[in-house]
Amino acid sequence: MHTTSSKPSDREIIQRIIDGDADAFAQILKKYKACVMGIVSRHVPYDHVEETAHNVFVRAYQSLEIFRGDDKFRNWLGSIAVRTCYDFWRERYRSKEVPMSTLTQQHQEWLENVISDTSDQAFSQHGSREEARELLDWALAKLSAEDRIVLELVYLEGLTVKEAAESLGWTAANVKVRTFRSRKKLHKLLSGLIGKGMVQ
């Protein structure tokens, strides 16, 4: 009983950090690292997850002064994580470092299997396949950084337009329009792929 009440709250820890105790940030790091890693892992390639999550915590530390205690710290940190991932892609697109993977015969076979399969259970089993992720990466690389992040948040993760807008700091109207456009682009890309019988 005493152990739970003696645990400092996020607000108390943040106050200690602002008062000059940088080591207190280790508690924040320990508490939220899994959450941040989870968000970042969904948005950036695996080999960049640690580096991006590192940036998330550094940005959070530097922005602690603007954190308002009435907001939930987890949501606030999650929002920083999403924006850092978006910045990661913006930087990559700007420097033209987005990996444009090519699709192979293996992907073709996988795609044909998915299309010919009629059971919904089988669809979800296909989802665990590496080919699905590679195909998704291929399609997402064809979109802009803005379309990409919106599509991931709203369409793939299932966040509401309002939640995505809050995470990105954009207007709901902007998110709505971008979701619509990016979804259309994704469907067009996939339809083209299916219609052609595959690329390369």
Partner: peptide
């Protein structure tokens, strides 16, 4: 169909 599978994969 493909999008549903991709969503699962994601």
């Amino acid at each position: 169909k493909v999008v549903d599978v991709l969503k699962d994969a994601y």
